[in-house]
């Protein structure tokens, strides 16, 4: 591969030396890419037409994996749940993050303290967060029900309620808005102060400055958070694995949890590989679609680093 790339032959000895140094330097990544990403992905194409439980030799089974997929209710349920979860959790989380970042970006007294206090809880490791929210959603008298009681609302079964389990998980995800907030805050601080001053001279009030200065200039950051958020959300796994195991029924069965079950509990490597490829295509499509739509609403102001 390298020979093919560097084989132009028109390089001076000095340039050739530089090129060789360059290839040598990036070698760890290049090897890692071939061994851990490209190789396995190509290999897993073969798995799509295979039945293999790791214990007995793999067997070619034609399109059986695809046929199973077409009529697998759990697959469709997990896909639907994941889309529902993503469609609500990501925009809500970004909205909260953006509002808090806008509030923090005023010259408010105690800005640093507010920022630290609001940001820190989102840094609790995700497994610990899952443990914590499992406790919060206790049907006996967890924090969630204590708050309901305080508001004079009926007690709920949260994670054990078919209709509430997804909203409960979404609330928990919205609560983890700290990272998105920090990214928004950095984006807001990049906006040149002169633009606000100019807008003010033109008589623009708070709303119009937000609408015509802040949001357009922040749109690359919003876009970035959205792409990262949706890709991450499609892979939601740890929360459901620890808190609900996909239940009740399949009400919180998420895509990757199902993939995990097929691969590591049912030990069906062929079908799991098919589910992985579909996840890959979905993420690819979403990313491409977002970049396509982005041209209409994302405003790039000259060069941006980061």
């Amino acid at each position: 591969m390298i020979a093919a790339i560097s084989g132009s032959g028109r390089l001076s000895p000095l340039q050739r030396r530089e090129a060789l140094n360059g290839y040598f330097a990036i070698m760890p990544w290049l090897l890692g890419f071939i061994i851990f990403i490209a190789g396995p992905m190509v290999y897993s194409l073969g798995l799509l037409f295979t039945k293999w439980d790791l214990l007995t030799p793999p067997v070619f089974n034609g399109f059986a994996n695809f046929q199973r997929l077409a009529q697998d209710p759990t697959f469709f349920a997990s896909l639907g749940n994941t889309v529902f979860y993503t469609a609500l959790a990501v925009p809500l989380q970004l909205l909260v993050a953006l509002c808090v970042a806008l509030l923090l970006n005023t010259n408010i007294v105690g800005q640093n303290l507010y920022r630290a206090v609001i940001f820190l809880p989102s840094q609790i490791p995700i497994v610990a967060t899952a443990l914590l929210w499992f406790f919060i959603y206790s049907p006996t008298n967890g924090l969630a029900n204590a708050i309901m009681g305080g508001l004079g609302l009926p007690q709920q079964r949260w994670l054990w309620d078919i209709h509430l389990v997804k909203p409960a998980l979404i609330v928990m995800t919205v609560w983890m808005f700290g990272n998105a907030m920090i990214i928004f805050l950095a984006g807001l601080q990049d906006i040149p102060q002169q633009l606000y001053e100019a807008a003010e001279i033109d008589g623009a009030g708070t709303y119009r400055r937000l609408r015509h200065v802040t949001l357009p200039l922040l749109s690359p950051t919003i876009f970035f958070n959205l792409v990262i958020g949706i890709i991450g959300s499609f892979q939601v796994f740890i929360q459901v694995f620890i808190m609900t195991d996909g239940g009740p029924g399949t009400a919180s069965m998420m895509y990757v949890l199902y993939l995990y079950r097929i691969g590591f509990e049912e030990l069906n490597m062929g079908y799991a590989a098919l589910l992985s490829w579909i996840l890959f295509l979905i993420v690819l499509l979403i990313t491409l679609a977002q970049f396509g739509v982005a041209r209409r609403w994302v405003h790039y102001e000259g060069e941006r680093d980061g």
Partner: peptide, 21 residues
């Protein structure tokens, strides 16, 4: 560019074949 594009690649996509490896 190849390296950048793998930034978006979900870890879960290579999970099964990596496990086999």
């Amino acid at each position: 560019m190849v390296m950048l594009s793998t930034m978006m690649l979900p870890q879960m996509v290579t999970l099964i074949p990596q496990f086999i490896l």
